[in-house]
């Protein structure tokens, strides 16, 4: 099974990279964009004998303890 984990800065934290990308996109004509947030993306492959629930528990623990700093970041994921 493969987990895809998305990490981004919390909404309450200023994302200057996202802001810079947003301004650049506006400058080249993409006027309809209201916000850009930049984040990180991880693909994690698990051994096939694990159940979906086991993978889910592991992914949440990995994302919480390692992939994010909870002071400034949040995550979402999907398993396929």
């Amino acid at each position: 099974m493969r987990a895809r984990v998305y990490v981004s800065l919390k909404k309450s934290v200023l994302d200057p990279q996202g802001k810079t990308i947003h301004h650049s996109l506006q400058n080249i004509g993409f006027q309809q964009i209201t916000e850009v947030r930049q984040g990180k993306f991880f693909e994690i492959d698990f051994a096939s004998e694990l159940t979906r629930e086991e993978v889910q528990a592991e992914v949440e623990k990995i994302a919480r303890d390692v992939l994010t700093n909870p002071v400034i970041e949040e995550f979402s994921y999907r398993i396929e």
């Binding site: 800065l9 934290v13 200023l14 200057p16 990279q17 810079t20 700093n69 002071v71 400034i72």
Partner: peptide
């Protein structure tokens, strides 16, 4: 990151 001190570091203002 170790939790020995509170808080976190963001990229510098101005990047």
């Amino acid at each position: 990151e170790s939790g020995l001190l509170p808080g976190a570091m963001l990229r510098n203002r101005g990047l």
